[in-house]
């Protein structure tokens, strides 16, 4: 697999074992800035595991996961959080802080990155508005419906245009209008330079993403089929010469603090 300066995420020969069964068998994947990859697979095929490995949430048994050209498993455990700050991750079962409001939940990634309060809240409101949740911004998450909670979790994953966005079953339990909202929101994140990796068992949703330009890969028998994704250019919106503020200003500073190399391409 050739190295590419635009490459933000790279899985090399990743093998994962669960209950003595090989779930991911030497999976390799390369994702570049602006790419949109959707991984389709049946339930139990290992999609969620693959996505959690890509999101630096779980370390594989074997193989390497390079984010920004650096294998995050080579880092000290105390440095891994600084890598995670560059990843917007939606787990299959989103975890939210129940007693806090939708706005407080969505703004958290920017709070962790140390973005000034006023600017972060303004961005969070925009993100909620994009998800059609502006009316519920100040409601506690515990009072929201399952679909609203999922939208809040997606907004949290997309906020601040992280380098890599990993979404596991983003459309789970959502209707057509909400799915369209998600697709549009992902498009905005890509335009800001993010690489998007989606996983879904929903064929209709996968088709919808494909129709919007996503590259489709299939995970079966622990192997990825469909070849390495190609660069996808979003015409008229992407500007590689101007990285998003999070990409350059915040992340580099945080990574300097952690004394590790930047994960930003």
């Amino acid at each position: 697999m050739s190295s590419n300066t635009d490459e933000v995420l790279r899985l090399e020969e990743v093998t994962c074992v669960r209950r003595d069964k090989v779930v991911l068998d030497r999976v390799s994947l390369s994702v570049r800035a602006g790419d949109w990859v959707v991984i389709e697979g049946a339930r139990g095929s290992g999609k969620s595991l693959l996505l959690s490995v890509a999101a630096a949430a779980i370390a594989p048994r074997r193989g390497a996961v390079l984010i920004g050209g650096r294998n995050w498993m080579d880092l000290q455990a105390s440095s891994v959080p600084f890598v995670r700050r560059n990843i917007g991750y939606l787990p299959a079962e989103p975890v939210l802080i129940e007693h806090e409001t939708a706005l407080e939940n969505v703004v958290l990634p920017l709070a962790v990155r140390g973005v000034p309060v006023a600017a972060a809240l303004a961005r969070a409101e925009i993100e909620l508005q994009r998800m059609g949740l502006q009316e519920l911004a100040h409601e506690p998450v515990s009072a929201l419906s399952p679909s609203e909670r999922r939208l809040v979790a997606i907004a949290r994953a997309l906020i601040g245009a992280p380098v890599v966005i990993v979404l596991d079953e983003p459309a789970g339990g959502l209707d057509g209008d909400d799915r369209q909202l998600i697709v549009e929101a992902i498009g905005v994140a890509r335009a800001a330079g993010a690489a998007v990796l989606c996983g879904s068992a929903d064929a209709a949703f996968v088709s919808l993403l494909q129709s919007q330009g996503a590259e489709r890969l299939t995970l079966a028998g622990g192997r990825l089929n469909g070849g390495a994704p190609r660069m996808v250019v979003v015409e008229g919106e992407r500007d590689d010469s101007v990285p998003s503020p999070i990409l350059k200003e915040v992340s580099e500073e945080l990574l300097d603090d952690a004394d590790i190399e930047a994960v930003i391409p």
Partner: peptide, 19 residues
Amino acid sequence: RERVQRDAVLELLGETRVA
């Protein structure tokens, strides 16, 4: 329960243990 949930979210988002 509340504490474990909050910590899990913050960890997921890249917060350090000290913070």
